[in-house]
Design a protein around this nucleic acid. Structure first.
Lengths: 190, 190
DNA sequence: TCGCGGATATATCGCTACGATACGTCGCAT
DNA sequence: ATGCGACGTATCGTAGCGATATATCCGCGA
């Protein structure tokens, strides 16, 4: 249940880790990192924040030093419980971790996990994409009637993008590996 | 209202134009063309089909020539009204036409519109992407604190993908334009 | 020849999360 | 002095998604 919501929680925790913020700013940052496709709506963010408050993962920061600012600007910060939860979520790899939305968020916070986790997430993501690619390729090949020019171009472009993404992941994986290796073997292909 | 639903309608009409189909097959084809991100669920498809039946955009094809097939396989085909609607939707350019989901579908059916429409949709899509790109760039530059290594890499990759997409669109636009030109330059590669 | 698993096929329902919208404050441009 | 756009919090209706139920067909091994 609520797979998207889970990833929002992770993102909020991660962002608050670099300093207290209020909802509006959180949303902007979130949209920048989720960025490319969909945006996060207030209808999702505020309820999530409420839920996290109730769960004591975050708390409201002491308000206005600036004396009487009429309308409350609610600034949130993580609690120790929130930190624990963040670490738990980051370490919790598994199919959900490399789904489209989740992957981006986890990746953005890679700096706060260890290499073992990073590698597993990157590899999981890569095989997820590879698997999609294979499925499309096979479906394409078993299509009897030849396709329309434009449809074909769309397919081609999609496949190309996915392949590029796979390459990107491979490069990242190699980079991680070589950073770890005591004896980095020079000729490791792919 | 119901922007996604509208695009499903368009896709269904377009697909049925290349021959009668039943829901299951429709879904497969749809997922192949929407393909890259989300899949279309039955919970969306069947209600849409019902709605289109009621609107007389499609109709059930005469059933079993094969005598007593117990469970009905419902095969749909477009009505003349459906064809009209398809043409109307394809010609209806405007912001909605170059949103992520819609664009792909329209593109896939470019073979059934004229060049003027194609160009406008391609250009609309390109400026949509360009605009996103600019927004990210400016937000990036106005960020005071320098970002984490991984976050930066994620941004970089996102920007690169978007730029590649813009390039793709530009190439397509040029191709359309040169096809229009009275003097077709002989060296058309690809 | 039976039966089992998997692909094909239609259908519905609960619930989530998104779009729309409302409301309020601040600053600055005209 | 007022209008406009950015900042900021909040809620609500409902579209549509995931899960699930149900049923048929077919290939394959035992």
């Amino acid at each position: 249940m609520a797979r998207r919501a889970e990833s929002i929680e992770l993102a909020v925790l991660g962002l608050l880790h670099e300093g207290p913020m209020h909802g509006y700013e959180l949303r902007k940052r979130l949209n920048l990192m989720l960025g490319w496709g969909r945006v996060l709506s207030y209808g999702s963010l505020y309820p999530t924040l409420k839920k996290m408050l109730k769960g004591a993962l975050i708390e409201e920061l002491a308000p206005s030093l600036t004396p009487v600012s009429r309308r409350p600007k609610i600034v949130y910060q993580v609690t120790p419980a929130g930190t624990t939860e963040f670490e738990r979520l980051m370490a919790d790899i598994g199919p959900a971790a490399w789904e489209d939305d989740n992957f981006g968020i986890r990746f953005a916070f890679f700096g706060r996990t260890d290499m073992e986790i990073r590698l597993r997430v990157l590899e999981g993501r890569r095989s997820r994409l590879q698997e999609r690619l294979d499925r499309v390729q096979s479906q394409l090949s078993m299509t009897e009637k030849e396709v329309d020019r434009y449809s074909a171009e769309l397919q081609r472009h999609g496949v190309e993008s996915a392949e590029r993404e796979v390459q990107w992941l491979s490069d990242l994986i190699n980079a991680e590996r070589s950073r770890a290796g005591s004896t980095p073997p020079p000729a490791t292909q792919n």
